[in-house]
Amino acid sequence: MKIAVISFSRSGYALGEALHAGLIKEGHEVTTYTKSKYTKMVLDESQLDIDAKTIRNVKQFAKPVDESIGAWTSLRFQNSDALIFIGACGIAVRAIAPYVKDKKKDPAVVVVDEQGNYAISLLSGHIGGANALTLDVSRITGAKPVITTATDINEKFAVDVFAKRNGFYISDMGLAKDVSAALVAGKEVGFYSDFPWIGELPEGLKIAHEDEERPELGIAITSSYLEHPFVHTLYLVPRVITLGLGCRKDTAKEEIQNAVRKACDEQLIPTVAMEQVVSIDLKKDEPGILEYCRERNLPFITYTKEELAQVEGKFTKSEFVESITGLDNVCERSAVKGSEDGRLIVRKHAENGVTVALAMKKWSVEFE
């Protein structure tokens, strides 16, 4: 996690030094700032559970902040995963207020009083990770963690935390809130999954059996919107699908996008279910594919002809493709290869010189 820490006083600066060293030890990327003139404080390592080697390896602590807190916060909201304010809650609230937009995208915000008595999860407790970061801060400083999210204080299943841990796309944040509210109120929430799961189903979730009455509200873990197991279905979509592509040279990104969309429409597969795009290495510099992947932040992986020839299975043959690449099929073979010998869920779909295939890897849901 990329964390920005800011302090406003002598004691706050000293605590910032401690957090800087401790959070780095926890594996975070940390940059520390101060609006205080006290930028040359010496960290008293004897008061902290941090080894001296870790402290010596920290080359720089707080950078002075010359701009306003609002301007500093605006930039940190754009380039940080989390902000830690060492000072009064009021300072943090006023600083972040203009920039709070979307709980799916807002960074985590934690406030620690300058004496290190309390660490407060202020914003994006679940999806942003503020609750988990608050616990990290508490371990480092000895502060008492203050976490107010209802599912946490009632020790209930938190669907947004579960989704983040498993890398799910949450289809509807309003329904996610309804799921949490139902569980906190002691109501049953339905559970449906296209995938096997590891661990015990959390308390409050009821498996959706065909021959039994189902709750109106439920969670569906699936890579397709074909199924609608509950009246109000919250879809949690894992990234488990590999997109195999082939195309004519210099095919426009728009043509690729259109072909992918039509291939996905066959099974109502949302593009958020894709984890990567794959093809033959002849296409490694194809501008349209590269632009398509860049816009969606998807890795583009290519394989040699020899690698794809070794993929086992029955594939849709094309004499034209074979004359160009030396293989009877590129999109299906590469999709299966990329999914680690997963199963084809959409065979070759051709559209304006673009060929598309989708394969799903073997995968399981994990409950703690």
Rank of each mutant, 00 (worst) to 15 (best):
C89F: 06
A119N: 10
K105A: 11
L75M: 03
V111P: 02
I140Y: 06
I120G: 03
I96K: 08
K63V: 09
K59H: 12
A119D: 11
Q115F: 06
G128N: 06
G142A: 05
A82V: 14
S124A: 10
F61S: 06
A119V: 03
N117A: 08
V110S: 07
A119M: 04
A130S: 12
A143W: 11
R94M: 05
S138R: 07
Y118S: 07
P64S: 11
D136R: 10
G128Y: 05
T134H: 07
W72I: 01
E114W: 05
A143K: 02
W72Y: 13
K59F: 05
I84Q: 13
K144D: 06
I86K: 13
D66N: 12
F61K: 05
T54R: 09
D106E: 05
A62G: 13
D113M: 04
N57M: 12
V146A: 12
V146P: 01
S121C: 10
S138G: 10
P64R: 14
D81F: 04
N117E: 09
E67I: 02
S80D: 10
E67N: 02
P145N: 15
P64K: 13
L133Q: 07
R76M: 15
N79D: 15
L83Y: 06
I84T: 13
H126G: 00
L135S: 11
P64F: 11
I91P: 05
R94Y: 08
C89H: 04
A92C: 14
K101Q: 10
I55Q: 00
